[in-house]
Amino acid sequence: ASLNAPRNAAFSVDAEPTAKKIVTGYNNFYEFGTGKYDPAASADAMKTRPWTIEIAGEVEKPQTIDIEALLKMPLQERLYRFRCVEAWSMVVPWVGFEFNQLARLAGPTSKAKYVKFTTAMQPETMPGLRIPVLDWPYTEGLRIDEAMHPLTLLTLGVYGETLPNQNGAPVRLVVPWKYGFKSVKSIVKIEFVENEPSTAWNKAAANEYGFYSNVNPNVDHPRWSQKRERLLPSLFASRQTELFNGYADQVASLYAGMDLKKNF
């Protein structure tokens, strides 16, 4: 379904969007298989209605929100850079609203230092769950100030329409200065917590996927360089990767005084 969402130029990059068939055809969504083309081929089966998000933990008003209520929020389109940890990138017109707006509905308490996100588990529609490549359900986490940052977008659509299932329907997060896997898909639960939550990729290989996973050309993945990236569908990995994926002006202050090589 199409979404009414004016472009927010202040939060958009000056770049050509990646072709829609690439954005919606080349995805990492391991619940539907580890191949990049698996999600587009098999995610149609996922049931996205009814859909609710449980908001729990250190909040004044724990609640369960229906997806239809989220779709009634004022939406905007933002053209973001999207950089995968595998060294490819895209430019994507996401549609959504700032996560902090949702957080405010629940009212995080002073104990809420981190936010933990959980992806849906539908064994009957997600063949990838049968293989323990990750500790299911998929979990991700952000520090509270990262989650509340205006760039962190609760995303309901792409290319002016509701999200295709393979892109994390019906609701996902987009954190544009971090590697793509931090932008958790198909969210069913949001918990505000006091301690740093464990996350799926960090549990799988802590030396390769740190909790922060900020895009950083100076910190290589143990098995490949992060200096450059391949802006799809380019053959050559000729784009220089930027610190914080080009969003340093907005987010570098979040990490002032931190050793980014240690806290990668």
Partner: peptide, 15 residues
Amino acid sequence: GVFWNPDLLGANPAE
């Protein structure tokens, strides 16, 4: 695929 039909090689032809 490279020269005449890019779609044949998918979204990431180099890969």
